[in-house]
Every structure is written in C-alpha cells, then in structure tokens.
Amino acid sequence: MPEVSEQLLPGYMIRRGSTLERSLLLKFMQLTYQDLLPNEDFSHLEQTVKQYFSSDTPLWWVEEEGERGSRGERSNFTSPPYPLPPVPLPLMPNTRSPIACLWVGNAIDQVHGNRHAHIFILYVVPEHRRRGIGTALMQYVENWAIQRGDRQIGLQVFQSNKPALNLYNQLGYQTQSLWMVKFLSAEK
C-alpha cells in the first residue's frame, strides 16, 4: 500500500502511521515523558503501547517536506538530528524521520456515555517547536474527530507542562475534571 501524506503546514507533511511503527511510537512516548521528568525510568511505556496501540487507535507522523528523488520518492533518513532512546528505529520505506507525532484513542464520556477521541500523545521535537505544528495537529485531529461523529476530544496534561496547557487553553479546551492521586506507602 503506498504511503499517503498531505501537507499539514508549509514545509511539513502529515501521514497516517502504521501498527508496524510500534517501536517509533514508543520512542516518541519516552521523549515526551523524559522532557517532563528527566530522571525517571519509562520502560513501562512499552506495556502501554502493547496494550492500546492498534488499527483502532490512529497514529499520525509529521515529517519535513524533503527533496524528492528522480522517481518521486522521498529520501529515507534513519538518523534524526535529535536524541532518541535506544530502541530500534523501524521507519517505513521512503519516509523521513518524523519530527512530531499524534496518537489518538477512544474514550467514553462518563456523563453522557458517548464515545469520543482521546489524545494519548502529541509530541513535537524541540527543534521544531513554536512553529505552529502543535496547533496544526490539534486542528487536524479535531477535523478527524468531527468527521467520525465525535462531539468532544479529551486529553490529559501534566499541570507542570505550561506550554501544553497554554496551547490547549488557547484552542478552547477546558478542565472538566481533575485527576487526583494519593501515593501509598507499602510500609506500615
């Protein structure tokens, strides 16, 4: 099946990911959390990807527009200009290294019982931030969700992630509930 991509913003293309890109998704999830909590171990994220990533949970990659070869195919870069965790990089044929990703799942609204899109991850590598990619991805997923009949989109964001909070607030997202935790001690 040929790769289908479209322009997201000038200079950036978006393409639908494949379930074969599980390792690359895991890398981007690790990058997301390492940005926020650099001294933590996120090896458990592999289980999250294993349990929730499927053809029913769409994944999109953003890549820079590249020079096309003589037959029209894009170059295949395997060494991105940003650090990735030590996981094999399974790029699809004729694709560039992604600079952003968006992974979406499904959730059920606990008030009305309606299925809706839930953003698992939105990540843009640091070198490409503040260029409108996050905003464009949010608009992209909103259009996708509307087309499939969703009436809302949910997401979870760390309270300490001020840039993400600012983006979501600017786009009209509102706090509907607070996720609260209490850490328990095993000692008595």
Rank of each mutant, 00 (worst) to 15 (best):
N169S: 14
Q110G: 12
L155H: 07
R131T: 05
N106G: 15
W179D: 08
M13S: 05
D35S: 15
M1V: 06
L36N: 06
Q152P: 01
P90M: 00
E21D: 10
N114D: 14
E63D: 12
V4M: 12
G105S: 13
Q174R: 15
Y33C: 09
S5N: 06
P90N: 00
L167W: 01
I108Y: 11
D150C: 11
A107P: 00
P88N: 00
L45P: 00
L155V: 13
F120I: 02
H116T: 05
L178A: 10
G113Q: 10
A136W: 09
T135I: 09
G132W: 03
R15K: 10
P88G: 00
N166Y: 03
Q51D: 14
Q147S: 14
A186Y: 03
L37K: 14
R15D: 01
P126R: 10
F42T: 03
P2Y: 05
A186V: 07
N143L: 13
S177I: 15
G17H: 05
R151C: 10
V87M: 02
Q7A: 15
G72F: 12
P80C: 04
I146S: 11
Q170H: 07
G149D: 06
M13C: 12
D35W: 02
Q110D: 09
A107Y: 04
Q170M: 07
E142D: 09
L178S: 07
Y173V: 02
Q110N: 09
A145N: 06
E21M: 01
W144Q: 13
T78P: 00
L167Y: 00
K182S: 10
F183N: 06
M92E: 04
K27F: 00
L167N: 02
R74C: 11
V104S: 04
Y33H: 14
Y82S: 03
R96G: 02
L155G: 07
Y12Q: 05
L91Q: 01
P163G: 03
V104F: 03
Q176V: 15
N39S: 14
Y33D: 02
K188D: 05
N143F: 05
S97T: 11
L91M: 11
L59W: 06
L89G: 00
Q7F: 09
R131E: 10
L165P: 01
A186H: 04
L155M: 14
R16T: 15
S54L: 12
S79A: 08
